[in-house]
Design a protein around this nucleic acid. Sequence first.
DNA 1: GGATCGTGTCAATGGATCTTGACCCGAGTT
DNA 2: AACTCGGGTCAAGATCCATTGACACGATCC
Lengths: 121, 121
Amino acid sequence: MGQISGSSSGAFDALADDTRRAVLSLLSEHGELTVSDLASRFDHIGRTAVSMQLKVLRDAGMVQERRAGKYRYYSLRVEPMNEVLSFLSSLYGTSLDSLAAVAEQRSADDNAEGPRWGTSS
Amino acid sequence: MGQISGSSSGAFDALADDTRRAVLSLLSEHGELTVSDLASRFDHIGRTAVSMQLKVLRDAGMVQERRAGKYRYYSLRVEPMNEVLSFLSSLYGTSLDSLAAVAEQRSADDNAEGPRWGTSS
DNA sequence: GGATCGTGTCAATGGATCTTGACCCGAGTT
DNA sequence: AACTCGGGTCAAGATCCATTGACACGATCC
C-alpha cells in the first residue's frame, strides 16, 4: 500500500561524508577559505576531490562562493540546515528545544575532552 | 597528521539513506512497529532490506528493540541525535537556538503547505 | 514433537559514490 | 602574447553500500 516515498535530500547526503563535514567545520572556523586552502589541510585527499566535494556542497546550497580575482572563497550557508533540523523536529515533535540544549552542553564537553570533528594540526 | 579524520558518525550515516529516514518517520508516527509492519509499508523494498536498515539504525543507537514473544517492536531513541545537533551547533556557534526556532516554524508550515524535503533537483 | 511465523544474518550481486589524473578555462604576470 | 596559477569538469578505476535469496533460530500453535 502506501509507499513512503523518499526524499532525496541534498542536505542529508551532503552531511553523510566525513570529508564534507570536515570542510564545513573548516569553513565554520575560518569563515572563508579557498579550495587550495582547504585541500592543503587534508593529507589523503587531493585538490580535485575537495573541489568535487565542494560541488556537492554547492549543489546542496550549503556553501557559497565569492570570486575575487583568480581565487574563489567558500563560506557556509545556513538555510539548507533547516531541512535537517526540520526533519529532526518532526521526529521528536516539539522536543527539539531540549535536544538543542543537550547538544550545546555536549559540544562544550567535547571541546574540553577532545576534538570530535576534527581539525587541526 | 594533518589529517582531519572524521568522527565515525554513525548518526550521519544512518540519516543519509531515504529508507532509513522513512523508517524513523514511521517509528515517530506510530511509536512502536515490528519489522513486518515496517516492511509492509514499503513497496519496492523487502523485509530483509528493512531488517538490514534496522541493523544500521540499531548499531547507530537510533532505534531500540523490545521483544515480546516472537515479535520485536522498534522505537526511536533520541541520544544519537545529539551528535548531529552538536555538529550543527558547532558549525553555527551558539545560533542553534534560533535555527531550532526557524525549523519548528518551518515544520509547521510544511504540515500546512506540503512537504519540503522531497525535492532536490 | 513437528510445522509455522517473525527475524537476524550471511554471501553474492548490482549500483551508487568517492577519488584520481588529464584536460580546459579564466585571471594575473612577465 | 606566452606563461603560470587557481579551479572546474570529465572519464575511469576503486570502493562502499544496499538489496536480495537462502539459511538459521527462537517462539508459538497444532
